[in-house]
Nucleic acid binder design. Structure first.
Ligand code: MN
Ligand code: MN
Ligand code: ZN
Ligand code: ZN
Lengths: 139, 139
DNA sequence: ATCATTTTTAATAATAATTATTAATTTATA
DNA sequence: TATAAATTAATAATTATTATTAAAAATGAT
């Protein structure tokens, strides 16, 4: 179970397990839609009215720091992704939804290495219109 | 000349050519280092102390709107690129510099199109450490 | 169970990038 | 030169995110 793994890793690194962190993990780890801190906050507020946005940011940033989540920086704000397997993203320019795509394989060896000493990471964003938006528009 | 092309396109679309826009075009169009609005503003201020940051933002955003520049959204802020040929970017995680790379060729046809109706654009960011930073660190 | 230590929370303030507003000025055109 | 439309600079507003901090909670040892 993803949550237990996350809790173990947090404990192992000296982080304490609070109810707030568990609520966030419960919601975030199973999400597929790349939520923002605020959207997680708004959802949690329904059940836990006293949770604070700072705590949500704190927890999500911690998860990114320890490698259990990744951040997706788009034009307007930061989105968070609990899927840390290599993969790419499709961003619909109409509705803003972010979809997972297969990892795009890039031959990093073939890159001009004039400037590059070491490669740590790769982000591929494909922008366009999603099927849902085309379908709605066609009605 | 890139500047004349930009001015013609602006005129053609009903934009007026002001000295401020020319100063910005002069500086921006020949830049290779993906400047931010503020860095352009700071450089221009040396020669034109009365230019405003709003005007720089306005002009850069206009250039993006009409397809003469692209915006690069990174974690901290927006950078602007006068190079509108397809290409990728390498971002040094140590010094923050953004380097141009050859366009990464991706077989868009091979993408799972479960969600995708139309593709407009593609952004590839490779993160790592640049040679300059490795060299400096080794000293 | 209690204590001591460390961390976390929530609330709030602060920061920083960007956009909005607007009166005065400038451009483009006739 | 007169007119209409767009732009500028200054400033205010907005928004996402981080920083601060006193009070509360978690952890681990007694
Ligand atoms: Mn994803
Ligand atoms: Mn570039
Ligand atoms: Zn869509
Ligand atoms: Zn570097």
């Amino acid at each position: 179970m993803k949550k237990l793994f996350a809790i173990n890793k947090l404990r192992e690194l000296g982080y304490k397990i609070t109810p707030q962190r568990e609520y966030i993990l419960d919601l975030f780890l199973k999400s597929k839609e790349h939520p923002s801190a605020e959207s997680i906050y708004n959802t949690l507020k329904e059940n836990f009215p006293y949770i604070s946005l700072s705590t949500v940011y704190n927890t999500l940033n911690t998860l990114v720091d320890i490698g259990l989540a990744r951040a997706i920086f788009l034009e307007d704000k930061t989105y968070f992704d609990p899927n840390i397997e290599p993969h790419s993203h499709f961003v619909c320019e109409h509705c803003g939804k972010i979809y997972d795509l297969e990892p795009v394989s890039i031959d990093l060896k073939s890159l001009k290495t004039e400037y590059i000493s070491r490669i740590h990471n790769l982000d591929v964003y494909i922008y366009g219109i999603c099927k849902e938006c085309t379908y709605i528009k066609a009605q």
